[in-house]
């Protein structure tokens, strides 16, 4: 089978002011697959993920070096000439804690479309329904689309955030430990959803939970101290890692 790349990270370095947080990262991102980033706290996995949608640009003194090439159009995501807003319109993110806006369920999902100027009711209606269906939330909320999003449970709020991220047809969907604030039932729903979604969108997920990485991902990168120690098919990482450090981490000897 021919591998198709959605993005490729080449010699990425990232600095918070004078502190280097990511070192010489090289990583392929396979199209329509789930790539997981695992590693102990502080290893840089979230920092790495936030490079993909230029979240670091929101804070001063952050600096990128290297390349994250987005295919097929070969643009370098982290190039200073590229407007971060353009990037964020194509690469969506789901955060650690559900962060719905103080708006109705409908308006939460429509937000991304509204900020880029779509205001036709018919277009919004269709997109909202499609995204909510995509996030497996439609049946639960279809009768109360105009209720405040805060009325939903934590798991539903997180699926609402996924619907919000899907509404703009992103090319890559980033998940930053999306289930760390959820109970086991809500977690398994989100995991099922991630597996379904990869048919349509390329996914990168940061997770603390190794079982989660094993359950949902096709490829896994193990990070330690700002570097990628090992990257391979998820099965291989969890059954026959080639690096001793990876093995120690996945068997729970450190981290």
């Amino acid at each position: 089978m021919v591998k198709e790349l959605k993005a490729e990270v080449k010699k990425l370095n990232f600095y918070y002011g004078g502190v280097q947080a990511l070192k010489e990262i090289n990583l392929p991102i396979e199209r329509r697959k789930v790539s997981a980033l695992i590693g102990p706290s502080g290893c840089g996995k979230t920092t790495f993920l936030r490079c993909f949608n230029r979240m670091h640009d929101l804070y001063p003194h952050n600096r990128y070096e290297g390349e994250i090439t987005l295919y097929p159009d070969n643009i370098n995501i982290i190039s200073p000439e590229i407007d971060p807003i353009e990037i964020r319109m194509q690469i969506s993110m789901v955060f650690q804690k559900p962060n719905p806006f103080p708006k109705s369920i409908y308006e939460n999902v429509a937000y991304g479309l509204r900020v880029r100027g779509t205001s036709k009711r018919a277009v919004l209606d269709e997109k909202v329904e499609k995204s909510l269906r995509g996030a497996a939330l439609w049946d639960e909320v279809k009768d109360r689309l105009h209720h405040l999003a805060f009325d939903l449970s934590g798991g539903q709020q997180q699926r609402l955030c996924i619907a919000r991220a899907l509404a703009t047809d992103p090319r890559i969907l980033l998940f930053d430990e999306p289930t760390s604030a959820l109970d086991p039932t809500a977690t398994s729903k989100i995991e099922e959803l991630i597996i379904q979604l990869k048919d349509e969108v390329t996914i990168i997920i940061v997770t603390h939970n190794m079982q989660q990485a094993a359950r949902v991902s096709d490829y896994t990168a193990f990070m330690y101290l700002g570097e990628i120690v090992e990257y391979d098919k998820t099965d291989r990482i969890f059954t026959a890692p080639s690096n001793k450090l990876t093995e120690e981490y996945i068997t729970g000897r450190f981290g």
Partner: peptide, 26 residues
Amino acid sequence: PMHIREGSYAMGATKLQTAFKVVIPS
């Protein structure tokens, strides 16, 4: 909270949109 603002920025909103559509309502 910052993560509410980040949610808006992550959708491609500008500073002004984030301030008026998300921060002020919050």
